[in-house]
């Protein structure tokens, strides 16, 4: 892919893994720490990390409004795990501020604490018949999805991969595996965005 880079929000979390995965999938990737960095990118990935921490820091460093404005104006957005929590409409059982980019309610640590973290062979029909090696780490699931939200994959009876227009969210971490299909899916979204 030529043209503008895809940004990876570099406040906290597994930033480098996403940058590497995007580059290996043929995209140009840069890290985003400020609103001026955000102006340089054609799509934004929010990586895995701690949602409590990252929301606090996004507010403290004035990044909430610039991100919301860009995504509402059509910039493709992908939140993985923490990134999906941050992008949700609300978080079940918590008063947690979010960016409200996806009309979903997420449940944090839904599968349990770290000892319940797991690797799962996940069916994602939109990416082909081959199962996806999904890594769930203290992962959230989707408790409620609004009418405009398409559930692309489920595990244990709950949505774990959703799309609403130009925004996607995954409970799992494609950046920790060698399977590049979700990254390629997002790169395609960026390439075809208006």
């Amino acid at each position: 892919m030529g043209g503008r880079a895809i940004g990876v929000l570099a406040v906290q979390g597994d930033v480098e893994e996403h940058v590497r995965a995007l580059e290996r999938s043929g995209a140009r990737a840069i890290t985003v720490k400020s609103s001026s960095d955000l102006e340089e990118v054609a799509g934004l990935v929010v990586p895995g990390g701690e949602s409590t921490t990252v929301m606090l820091l996004l507010e403290r460093f004035g990044l909430v409004e610039p991100i919301v404005e860009r995504v509402r104006a059509g910039m493709p957005f992908w939140g993985t795990c923490m990134g999906m929590i941050v992008a949700a409409h609300d978080v079940a059982g918590f008063e947690q501020k979010t960016l409200d980019l996806l009309d979903i309610t997420v449940r944090r640590n839904a599968f349990g604490r770290q000892i319940a973290s797991a690797e799962v062979a996940l069916a994602i029909p939109a990416l082909g018949a081959k199962l996806f090696p999904a890594i769930f780490i203290r992962a959230p699931w989707i408790e409620r999805a609004g009418p405009g939200v398409e559930v692309l994959a489920s595990h244990d009876g709950h949505g774990v991969f959703v799309r609403q227009g130009n925004a996607i969210g995954t409970s799992f971490h494609p950046e920790l595996t060698a399977d590049r299909r979700v990254h390629e899916y997002f790169i395609e979204m960026v390439a075809t965005a208006v």
Binding site: A10, V11, Q12, G13, D14, V15, E16, E17, G48, G49, E50, T53, C81, M82, Q114, I115, A116, S117, A118, E119, V120, A121, I135, F136, I137, R138, H155, D156, H173, L176, T177
Partner: peptide
Amino acid sequence: KNSNGAKTGTVKVKRGLAQMLKGG
């Protein structure tokens, strides 16, 4: 391996949690 086909306690999920803590 759990009944739902999920493999817990693997090297990837153990190292993975540390990766999520980076920068913190």
